[in-house]
């Protein structure tokens, strides 16, 4: 039973990470190969705040989010003005830099030996509620002006700007929000695992988060959720297949992109509106698939 609870906790945490990347990559078309750095920053901020400075859990969580957002601002401000490749490449480097920083500050952070003895404070209820809130946040954002603006920027930045969208400001908002979710999730991860180390999240983990979104479909939060839950719970349940699952995931992605670019779930969303349409068949005809 404990085992399954653990699987659920890990899966939910990773699903939160998938959602943070969904906003950034799925909706806005910005790719961060260093997104794991924000998870690491969140985890270490929370871990250090409690073990080294004796701060209470709730304050450590807030601190983790703040530090993560500051990191996002440092990376985002110079790069989000430039063409997207710069953002991608610089975030990739950022991930490596955070790792180097942790190794360098070994006296404080424990370096390669990792940081142990973090209080076990994030149990299933806290993680479940947090994930649920994040799901609702992201779903709400997608429905309204914020999400529409993201998609407009993704599809045609120049036209979006000419239609009155402050593209740079919006990208910063998206990135900071995404960094905040990632570092909050990272802090929960630290409080859940009690031990963290600099290699917690390398570029590959960040890449997986992106890839999962493309399997689910960039226009579907539901797709990102289901694919994320499926992928991470599968990996936890069948540990022996841990490495091979990535090879399978990779091949699956390429097949999806070549044959069904809109992703497995297209733009389908599991929502009250969809449920209603199940009961009244009539309007479903007019809906665009």
């Amino acid at each position: 039973m404990v085992f399954y609870a653990k699987v659920l906790e890990t899966t939910l945490l990773f699903t939160m990470f998938v959602l943070s990347v969904y906003m950034l990559s799925g909706l806005t078309g910005l790719f961060s190969l260093g997104h794991g750095a924000f998870i690491t920053i969140g985890a270490y901020t929370a871990g250090l705040a409690t073990t080294r400075f004796g701060l209470p859990i709730w304050l450590s969580l807030i601190l983790a989010v703040v530090v993560g957002m500051i990191g996002g601002l440092i990376i985002g401000a110079p790069t989000l003005k430039l063409r997207r490749d710069y953002f991608l490449l610089v975030t990739f480097g950022f991930g490596e830099m955070v790792r180097a920083l942790l190794l360098w500050t070994a006296q404080l952070t424990g370096g390669a030996m990792g940081l142990a003895g973090i209080p076990y404070a994030a149990e299933l209820p806290l993680i479940a509620v947090s994930t649920l809130v994040v799901v609702l946040f992201v779903a709400n954002l997608k429905k309204t002006a914020f999400g529409r603006t993201c998609i407009a920027i993704r599809d045609d930045e120049l036209a979006a700007q000419a239609m009155g969208v402050n593209v740079y400001a919006h990208k910063i908002k998206v990135f900071l929000l995404s960094a905040a979710i990632a570092s909050y999730g990272g802090a929960l991860l630290a409080f859940n695992m009690s031990f963290i180390e600099p290699n917690l999240f390398n570029w590959l983990e960040s890449a997986k988060l992106i890839v999962i979104i493309f399997v689910g479909g960039i226009n579907s939060v539901t797709g990102a959720l289901i694919t994320g839950i499926f992928y991470y719970s599968f990996g936890e349940l069948f540990r022996f297949a841990h490495v091979w699952r990535d090879v399978i995931l990779g091949l699956l992605v390429i097949l999806v992109i070549v044959f069904r670019a809109q992703g497995v779930f297209g733009s389908w969303e599991f929502s009250p509106a969809w449920i209603r349409s199940r009961f009244h068949r009539r309007p479903a005809r007019n809906q665009e698939a």
Binding site: L204, A207, V211, V243, I254
Partner: peptide, 26 residues
């Protein structure tokens, strides 16, 4: 050939890198 946006090239390229690394890891 399908004329898809650049994004898909990129995603395929990180996928290839990932598959290669995980294959050798396995």
């Amino acid at each position: 050939r399908a004329g898809k946006p650049l994004t898909y090239f990129f995603v395929n390229s990180i996928t290839v890198a990932m598959v290669v690394q995980q294959f050798f890891s396995a």
